[in-house]
Simulated scan of single mutants.
Amino acid sequence: MTHVEKELDVTSCSRGLWLVKIPKYMREKWAECGGCDAGKLKIAKVPGKIPTVTFASSEQLLEDGKIAHEHKFILHSVKEMTLGVFSQTVSAANPDAVVPETEKLLMEGQVIQKFECQPVVDKNYLDQKRAAVLKAAQPNRKAEFIDRPVHVYRPISHHKHTIDSELKKKAEGKKARDDKDKVMEMLYAAFEKHQYYNIKDLQKITKQPIMHLKEILKEVCDYNVKNPHKNMWELKPEYRHYKSEEAVVDDPPSD
């Protein structure tokens, strides 16, 4: 893979820039205003104090009354941060096109001040917040009065998944509790074939409700909580009747 180096234009690297976080509604209004003036920035310098920075929105943005008239800039420290602004031009013919590798990168400057833009409480701001609260309180669905029957929509009382579930229950039938001795006989017969079972397999064999089966298992079986037979049931030692697997060795012939 070939590596293509890009040149970084640092002609403007010494230029100081402000990084300002603005509310979402301001961003939307600025995008709507097009090429008109968004407002005016005022900087009041007082000797020995941090300058006071305010932003007054233009009259064109205030026409619909959905934005505060004035905003104040809250200063945040950037002493322990190094922030820069970089840019790269994109072809006007195709804004979504990938920028060619030969394109130069530009450093527009470094951030020397970081601000957060907050609205100054006034009538416009209160009206805006009231409208936002009322909009959020509106329900997504509303009941409407209908003066004539609607033939387009027909409610369905039995859905497919409900019908399938009912048919399955009827096919399986309600699991009735068998006599305890009968269940134990089925368990003993099962454990003669295998030493370990999980609860699902035993339920299939006995066809008993899970709670009833567990009550009987606790009397005659042990539940393994450790490997290699974790979560498996086996008969208690006093109920086991496994064949002995001891090897039989013939006595050596006598001389």
Rank of each mutant, 00 (worst) to 15 (best):
H3T: 15
H3I: 14
L8Y: 07
T11D: 09
S12N: 12
C13F: 02
L19R: 03
V20N: 04
K21G: 04
I22T: 14
K24V: 11
Y25G: 00
Y25N: 13
A31N: 08
E32G: 09
G34D: 08
G34R: 02
G39N: 08
I43T: 13
P47Q: 01
G48N: 06
P51E: 03
P51A: 14
F55P: 04
F55W: 14
S57F: 09
S57Q: 07
S58Y: 07
S58M: 05
L62R: 13
E63Y: 10
G65V: 05
K66A: 04
I67L: 15
I67W: 01
A68I: 02
A68Q: 01
H69I: 10
E70I: 09
H71G: 02
F73A: 01
F73Y: 08
L75D: 02
L75R: 15
H76L: 10
K79S: 04
E80K: 12
E80A: 06
E80R: 09
V85G: 06
V85R: 02
S87K: 08
S87L: 05
V90W: 00
S91N: 15
A92R: 14
D96S: 15
P100N: 08
E103T: 15
L105M: 14
L105G: 14
L106G: 02
M107N: 11
M107Y: 03
E108Q: 12
Q110G: 00
Q110Y: 11
V111G: 01
Q113V: 00
Q113Y: 13
K114I: 00
F115S: 00
V121D: 15
D122Y: 04
D122E: 12
K123E: 15
Y125F: 13
Y125N: 05
D127N: 15
D127Q: 08
R130L: 15
A131I: 04
L134Y: 03
K135Y: 02
P139S: 07
R141W: 02
K142L: 12
E144R: 07
I146Y: 00
D147H: 08
V152H: 06
Y153W: 07
Y153Q: 08
P155Y: 04
H159F: 12
K160R: 09
K160Q: 08
K160H: 07
H161F: 11
T162H: 08
D164E: 11
D164A: 07
S165I: 00
L167E: 14
A171N: 06
G173I: 10
K175N: 06
K175Y: 09
A176F: 05
D178V: 07
K180M: 07
K180Y: 05
D181F: 03
K182G: 01
L187T: 04
A189V: 08
A189P: 00
E192D: 11
E192Y: 01
H194M: 09
Q195H: 11
Y196V: 06
L202G: 02
L202V: 08
I205Y: 06
I205W: 05
T206D: 03
K207C: 09
P209E: 10
I210H: 10
H212R: 05
E215C: 07
I216H: 03
L217C: 06
K218V: 11
E219H: 04
V225E: 13
P228Y: 05
P228C: 00
H229G: 01
M232E: 10
M232W: 05
M232R: 06
E234Q: 14
L235I: 11
K236Q: 15
P237C: 10
Y239W: 10
R240K: 15
Y242G: 01
E245P: 00
A247G: 02
V249G: 02
V249I: 15
P252G: 00
S254M: 10
D255A: 14
